[in-house]
Structures are given as C-alpha cells and as structure tokens.
Amino acid sequence: MSGIEFILAGMLAAATPFLLAALGELVVERAGVLNLGLEGMMALGAAIGFIVVYEGGGHVAAFLAAGLVGVGLALVFAGLALGLRANQVAVGLAVGILGQGLSSLVGNSYESLTITGLPKLAFPGLSDLPVVGGMFSQDIIVWLSLIATAAIWAMFRYSRLGLILRAIGENPAAARAIGYRVTALRLGAVVFGGAMAGFAGAYAATVYTPLWADGMIAGRGWIALALVVFGIWLTGRIFFGALLFGALSLASLVAQTEGWAVPSQLLSSLPYIVTIVVLGIITSNKRLLKVNGVASLGEPFGP
C-alpha cells in the first residue's frame, strides 16, 4: 500500500476524534458558551470507554458509558458557568484539569493494555476502487459520525432548533425577551457537547488506537477547539478541518515508516505547529470572524 493510499484509507478514522469533539463544541459555542474542558472530557471518556471494553462490556456499553461521563463533567461545567455565572474560561480549564486527573486515576491500573477495535464495514463496490477504495471501508463509528455531521449541518441550516440556538448565542437578551429559555437551551447544548466529547475519547481509545496510555488524547481536545475557530463555526468547514488533521497525523506516520531524515519529535509537533499557523491565518481576517462568529461567546448571562 502506498503512502497516499494509506493516508486516504485511514484519514477518516484519524479525523473522527477531532470531528466528534469539534461538532459537540460547535453546538456549545453556537449557543454562546465556551467550554475549554474538551481535552479533559475526552480523556475521561477514553479511559472509561477503554475500561468497559477491557472488562468485557463491549463497544456499545463503552460508548454509552463514555458519553455519560462526558455529560457528567459537562454538568459540572454547566453548574458553575451557567448556574453560578462563573468565568467560563476558568471553569473550562478547571473541568479539563479535573477530567484529565480522573482519567489518569481510573486508568492507572490499565496502563499499556490493549483491546480489539471494531471491524471495518465496506461500501459494496466502491471499496474495490483503486487508490481511493480504502476510504469506503470504515468502522461503524466513522459512518455514524458522517451522519452526525450531516445532521448537525442540516439542523443549523434548516431547523427551528438551529435558528434558536444561533439566536441565544448571538443575542441572549433579545432571545429571552421573545420567550426562549436561554439558560435551559444552553444547558442542553453543553450536555450534548459533553456526550460528543465522551464519544470522541471512547473512539480514540477503543477503536482508532485500541489501547490505554495515560495522556493518550495528547492535545486532540485542544485541536478540536481550534478546529471550531478554523471552521469559523460552520459545520462543513469543521469537517474538512478535521480531515486535514486526520491526514496530517497519518502523514507523520508515513514519513516515519519511510525513514525520512526528520526527527520524529518534529513530526509529532506538526499538528500543533499547523494549528498555530492556521489559527493565525484565519483569525487575522477580522471581517470573516465578525460575520460568522458568535457575538456573545463566553459571556455569562443571567437575570
């Protein structure tokens, strides 16, 4: 298999942890809330998901459990940031640190153990194509996250719920004046984001690389946060951003196996460096951010 084929075949799976977490955060941020605890929610989801599969509970239970702990941390965030109107940046960091700590604690006795991932489901016909065929042979979670992407895109584009979420993110006072329950809706968005982050973590630890190692999320939660900005809060752009980062992480694997004379640490830093560079390019376009950004993002709101 050539490098290109390898990247094409694996890109979607590598992108899935980024994609799931970023889609959840997109909904949260569209509603006007900034949850920086993504990394910690993913880490705890990953640890719990891994443990459930390792102890014989199977992947369905693993994803449910990971989603639940993601929701649990999201509720802690919501209690402080929405209930008590605390500084969202600080609360997000706190929940992130707590989640990462809890993931190391529960995963402590599972360090370096491995499990079996999920089988690939091939798209009949398409998966036999030359070069691109591998793209059509993916596990069930990849297919489901593609459906989720389309669903969230459609929600923001066509549904009343999407419109309401955008309204409470844009101008919560006005949204409340016309009768929407801003805090309740934001709570819903944060809970959804927590579940998605939990799923993202579970995918990383039970399907994409079915093993447990402390710190295995390795900044993917933070990159997902950056992806929401790269995608200027648009579902389609976030999807392509996630694909880019999936491809990037595989490219460094390819470079390593082909024996390029590049230090492996530089290749491992590549996603972080690209994040910084792309972030600078996108955010320096203030007009773009103003048109597509969320006006009340991160601001506490209450009576």
Binding site: G79, L93, L98
Partner: peptide, 20 residues
C-alpha cells in the same frame, strides 16, 4: 499519583463555585 491531580482539579472547581 494521579489522585493529586484530581484533588487539584476539584480544588479549582470548588473555588470557582465559592467565589461566585
């Protein structure tokens, strides 16, 4: 060792609740 990180994280969570 991770228990210390959990303690640290929970300390910040409780503090942010309290300063409200």
């Amino acid at each position: 060792v991770a228990a210390v990180r959990v303690f640290q994280g929970s300390l910040l969570v409780f503090y942010l609740a309290a300063i409200t």
